[in-house]
Computed example of a mutant assay.
Amino acid sequence: MKKILSVLAALTLTASLLAGCSGKAASTPAETAGQAESASAAESTMESAAETETVSQQETTVAETEGSQPAEASGEETAVRVMALKGPTAMGMVQLMDTAEAGPVGGNAYEFTIAASADEVTPRLVQGDADIAAVPANLASVLYNNTEGKIQVLAVNTLGVLYIVESGDTVQTAADLKGKTIYASGKGSTPEYALNYILSSNGIDPEKDVTIEWKSEHSECVAALSSGEGGIAMLPQPFVTTAQAKNDSIRIALDLTKEWDALQAGVETPSALITGVVVVRTDFAAENPEAVSAFLDSYKESVDFVNGSTEDAAALIEKYDIVPAAVAVKALPYCNITFIEGTEMKEKLSGYLNVLFGQNPKAVGGKLPADDFYYSR
């Protein structure tokens, strides 16, 4: 029970970037930027800094069986309970979700649940009520450390979704941020670490050379952005698209994923700015290796479909009440939905976690995860 309580304390970081892409702006959902504090963050619980206006805590269950119990496997089928967040992680799964409505896929009888925030996912994963889940990258490391290896990462599913936007035309490169005021949410979490890394690597002292005004919600950043000339903010997708729909003067100045990649050029084992990953309970993976492999194959097909058929994918994204199709069509090219597993996953993710660890060990659960954190099939 003590260990469970310790793990549940990690909920305070659960609005990491991936969750950071879910939320509500007026009547349009967009994901929240998430907290990257570890279980020790229970000492001072932070309200999700990237949380947008009120987010419905509804869960949408797809292909669920009668009642609230997971689907019973029939014959050789394996019941697999999957959770994703209302944003890019769920967007990448929609084709698989749609196919699963007709019955088992690759021998797996799926039950999908879309959650509004990661604090809905974490307890169900830890308590064994979910088998596979899409979570913020740093949260995966925190859970691994606090459950003593009972969580493994299967694949990277979302790269960076953070963007520097402005209502003017003054920022063309990261160096142009020097001397500017930047509105942002996510202090003490992944957004802050990513921004600090980009700034410091471009010779800008985050403490002295820029003014970063931290807000509790994306909506506050947009309001501040619109209130003054030359306003600059850091926002995640698809919230950027939602903000642009309300204010056509807002433009994307910098893609922080591309800025990160540029800094990694020439590095022997380059890392990447990573928002989300897919994890599995270690026990479930050990007991059902074929089911896990089948899931990975089906999930990769779904990601390829979403990235290759934007309009069809957007229709499914609206079907599952993630974001409206009109928003999805414009946001998908900027959401960096991907599928990376195996050696490449380990190289990119371990490098990313190392950057976070260098800024704040709590962001990854106090220590870097061991090799068994990275699932290999």
Rank of each mutant, 00 (worst) to 15 (best):
S27P: 00
S27E: 13
S27M: 08
S27V: 06
S27D: 15
S27R: 10
T28R: 13
T28H: 07
T28N: 06
T28Y: 11
T28M: 05
P29I: 01
P29L: 05
A30I: 06
A30M: 12
A30R: 13
A30S: 08
E31S: 15
E31N: 13
E31H: 08
T32A: 15
T32F: 11
T32I: 14
T32Y: 12
T32C: 13
T32N: 14
T32M: 15
A33E: 03
A33P: 00
A33K: 04
A33F: 08
G34T: 03
G34W: 06
G34Q: 08
Q35P: 02
Q35C: 13
Q35V: 03
Q35F: 02
Q35L: 11
A36T: 00
A36E: 01
A36G: 08
A36F: 01
A36P: 00
E37A: 14
E37D: 12
E37Q: 15
S38R: 02
S38H: 02
A39D: 01
A39W: 02
S40I: 14
S40E: 14
S40Y: 08
S40L: 12
S40W: 11
S40A: 09
S40F: 08
A41P: 00
A41R: 05
A41I: 03
A42Q: 01
A42V: 07
A42T: 00
A42M: 01
A42L: 04
E43R: 14
E43K: 15
E43D: 09
E43C: 04
S44M: 06
S44K: 15
S44A: 09
S44R: 15
T45K: 14
T45V: 14
T45W: 11
T45C: 03
T45I: 14
T45Y: 13
T45E: 07
M46I: 09
M46A: 13
M46V: 09
M46K: 15
M46W: 05
M46D: 08
M46P: 02
E47G: 04
E47D: 10
E47I: 01
E47W: 03
S48F: 05
S48V: 09
S48A: 14
S48T: 04
S48Q: 08
A49C: 04
A49S: 10
A49G: 15
A49D: 04
A50L: 14
A50V: 05
A50N: 04
A50G: 15
A50T: 09
E51D: 02
E51L: 12
E51Y: 05
E51V: 05
E51S: 07
E51W: 03
E51K: 12
T52V: 07
T52M: 04
T52G: 09
E53P: 00
E53A: 10
E53N: 03
E53F: 08
T54Q: 06
T54S: 06
T54E: 10
T54W: 04
V55H: 06
V55C: 02
V55M: 06
V55E: 03
S56Y: 06
S56W: 04
S56V: 07
S56T: 09
S56A: 11
S56E: 06
Q57N: 07
Q57P: 00
Q57G: 10
Q57R: 13
Q58F: 09
Q58L: 13
Q58I: 06
Q58A: 15
Q58E: 10
